[in-house]
Amino acid sequence: MLAVSVRRGVENKILFSAKDLCTWFELRRWGFFRVGSVKAVDGVSFELRRGETITIVGESGCGKSTLAKTILGLCLPARGELNFDGKRLNGLNTRQMRSHRSKIGYIQQDPYGALPPFMTVRRILEEPLRINKTGKKEEMKRRVREVLAEVKLTPVEDFIDKFPHMLSGGQQQRVVIARSIVMKPRLIVADEPISMLDASVRIEILELIRGLQHAHNLGVIYITHDLSTVRHFSEHIAVMYGAKFAEKAKVKDILDNPLHPYTRALLSAVPKLDPANVTTFKEVPPGEPPSLLKPPSGCRFHPRCYAIIKGLCDVESPLEFEAKKGHSVACWLYRK
């Protein structure tokens, strides 16, 4: 099943692409004087085919959520190009932007916060349909039941009239997922969909998203800080550090042969179930992630890097080198 879908994915055409995408937040004092800008996404490029998943992984504050919001049209990019389904998204007006957004599903981190607490599940799922005026009442009702069944909240009657606080975390996240697919999107952006959930339901939720992806040939952008789950749930990984991509490749290539020093650190920090952990200390790069207001010169990782090449890494920003076909890494160690 997995192999089939991957093959199908490769044949699929490109669903989404970003080229040199930058999203900057202007910081103003007293709402007036510009004091600087937080470059939360700074020159990011990738493409995604239908039926495939790209995992974007990185530390807290590296700009993952901002990238997600830019893709959804919730943040305006300062520069760069976005293409979705063969259409250029830059310069759309408000109305077009709204209809564009409804074609991308959005799964958020905190399932409880993502659901209006005063609406029932039925109302929550009807909202996108009502807003986008899709079809008649009967059709809407049918669709709501359909998606509830798809996210396995069955029997539907048990859930449809409940309020979010009456559901467990996993069930809440299922409602969020149901809402994200109710408009039949082609792309789903899942921003840390499992990090607030209990460990025991995480796999269930990932399986669910994966199943929906296969059933509808969806593209998925999966954002996480924990690589332990990606092996079975993703085709590509992009490692993000300080608003830029450090490394980008197929899942296996990264997990089995990480190249960028940061990727290596990230992989070694992934919690592993091993009783021997009690006595061994983990290797963690020293220091804190860079400020995006005043990023370090040269390679953004150089203050924490063990392999730093003095005089180069701290001066020049590394280019993206193609270490292998389909495996690019932004690190001077791999310069040709």
Binding site: A199, T229, K272
Partner: peptide
């Protein structure tokens, strides 16, 4: 971690995802 006995503990251990193993993690329905 090596040899859980209670059926629930066994399920818990089987649900732990692992970076390198090919075995797919399971969940507790």
């Amino acid at each position: 971690y090596r040899e859980p006995l209670h059926p629930y503990s066994q399920k818990l251990i089987a649900s732990v995802p692992s970076l390198r193993q090919e075995k797919r993690p399971e969940f507790i329905p």
